[in-house]
């Protein structure tokens, strides 16, 4: 059974030898909720993910995955976790299908259940015709899809996705959004890191803006926009002498909070 907050991060601080990458951040993600973590490069998003997955030990604070402290009970905690990291970590010694089936075995899934789950995911991600292909033969976009599919292998209660749609064509991006919709219906808590603001605005129930290791604001995209951007429309010079009027969006909030580029407010 999924606890009401499958992912809970409380007062997480991560200090490296020479600097503090994450400073006292807290948030919870409910089952069926998609929570966005937005921020510039170096804001601490990837460090947060490394801590959530228990790979990097937190300097301070606690992270609970489905009620288990990831530093005290890493195995139990990670039984509920699916991670798609920013960098490619596919096991290139296996074919597409074996990749998924092998990964399932790390979660103690039986052979039949693994195979069935792998087949289902390949169908869902449009990879069924590549099942027997070696991973290295896949294009960048297909590898990305496979890596997201791999994160879903053990029906995770907590799904952590770091830039899942980088390199995907618009078609594949929409397919992935649909998959995430189904994961949400299943009751998974989703943590999404992305630089695509339209994606965050579309998918996330709430987003947190992370800047220099701190959460500077967190709310639903609509609330953030209405709180930070006073006007409903924004005028932007897109090319010299060409102005576009458009609805204010999450990107305006992001730019304003993390280092204003547009003169809106």
């Amino acid at each position: 059974m999924l606890s009401s907050f499958p992912l809970s991060v409380s007062h997480l601080t991560k200090r490296y030898a020479d600097f503090e990458a994450v400073s006292d951040i807290s948030f919870e993600v409910a089952g069926g909720e998609c929570f966005g973590l937005l921020g510039p490069n170096g804001a601490g998003k990837s460090t947060t993910i490394q801590c959530i997955s228990g790979f990097y030990p937190a300097t301070n604070g606690h992270i609970f995955l489905n009620g288990h402290d990831v530093s005290l009970e890493p195995k139990l905690a990670r039984q509920s976790l699916g991670v798609c990291s920013q960098e490619e970590t596919l096991d290139s010694d296996f074919t597409v299908f074996d990749q998924l089936a092998r990964h399932a075995s790390y979660f103690r899934m039986g052979r039949t259940a693994s195979a069935e789950r792998a087949r289902r995911l390949l169908d869902e991600f449009g990879l069924a015709d590549k099942a027997k292909a070696p991973v290295e033969n896949l294009s960048g976009g297909l590898k990305r899809r496979l890596q997201v599919a791999r994160a879903l292998i053990a029906f995770p209660a907590v799904l952590v996705l770091d830039e899942p749609t980088v390199g995907l064509d618009p078609d594949a991006r929409r397919m992935l959004w649909e998959v995430l919709g189904r994961e949400r219906e299943r009751g998974a808590a989703i943590l999404l890191c992305t630089h695509y603001m339209d994606e965050a605005e579309r998918l996330c129930d709430r987003v947190a803006i992370l800047h220099k290791g701190r959460i500077i604001d967190a709310d639903s995209p609509a609330n953030l926009i209405s709180r930070h951007i006073s006007r409903e429309t924004v005028e932007e010079e897109v090319r010299p002498g060409v102005y576009w009027k458009r609805r204010a969006n999450l990107e305006d909030v992001y730019l304003k909070l993390t280092g204003s580029r547009l003169g809106v407010a």
């Binding site: 997955s53 228990g54 790979f55 970590t89 990964h103 790390y106």
Partner: peptide
């Protein structure tokens, strides 16, 4: 290069 240690260490198997 393959980052296999990393990929496995975020499952119930530890580094």
């Amino acid at each position: 290069y393959q980052k296999i240690f990393h990929a496995i260490s975020v499952t119930p198997i530890t580094l």
